[in-house]
Amino acid sequence: MSGETLIELKQVSKVYRPKVKAAFSDAAPGVIAIEKLDLAFSKGEFSAIAGPSGSGKSTLLNLIGTIDAPTDGTIAFRGKTVTNLDENALADFRLHQLGFVFQAYNLIPVLTAAENVEYPLALQGVSRAERRARAIEALSWVGLDGLADRRPDLLSGGQQQRVAVARAIVHRPAVVLADEPTANLDSKTAASLLDMMLDLNKKHGITFIFSSHDPTVLSRARRVIHLQDGRLQ
């Protein structure tokens, strides 16, 4: 199951340039969030990115998730470079290979739990009946049977994040990327969310890469990548 290299970063750097294009912007070099990083992830991993605030965890996950472009270096997925793809190709890549879980859940408020989970399948063009069935199944994997027709505003934070996890796994992506998925949850809820993620990883072989600066969360990861000032520690 594990072993195959999924994601490979080579000499990846990310520099945030100041937005204000003032005359003196040449003087401001920008913030180096990630610096010449070499890193690889394999199939079946359950890995955490750790590091203090500002160390570059979110930036790294954004780059892996192709929702931000590196300033330098290349990222390859199953040996194919993705850093040179256009917007449509990147969208298709994310749609089929990646799942996202966000710190603030980011469910679409006008859609029910099931509709939120169905959304990636709808984008893939899966039929309505199949979509619904797979969404219900994914919701049951995350322990939310019976809440399919609730709108997000009627769900607790923990429940919302479970819906988000269901949405991230419903289309069987190769990797689920989660930036501080537990940061908005109390420790008990956080622990049970993590149990669930670990369960999905074990039972269904879903690869997880998540970030956190919470030691108890990090202790559940099988591999921890420590970042400091945009570099591996």
Binding site: A91, R94, F102, I108, P109, P120
Partner: peptide, 16 residues
Amino acid sequence: VREFGTLRALGARPVV
């Protein structure tokens, strides 16, 4: 804006 970002992250093409 954040919702559009979410949709795009989930794999929606710009045209969506």
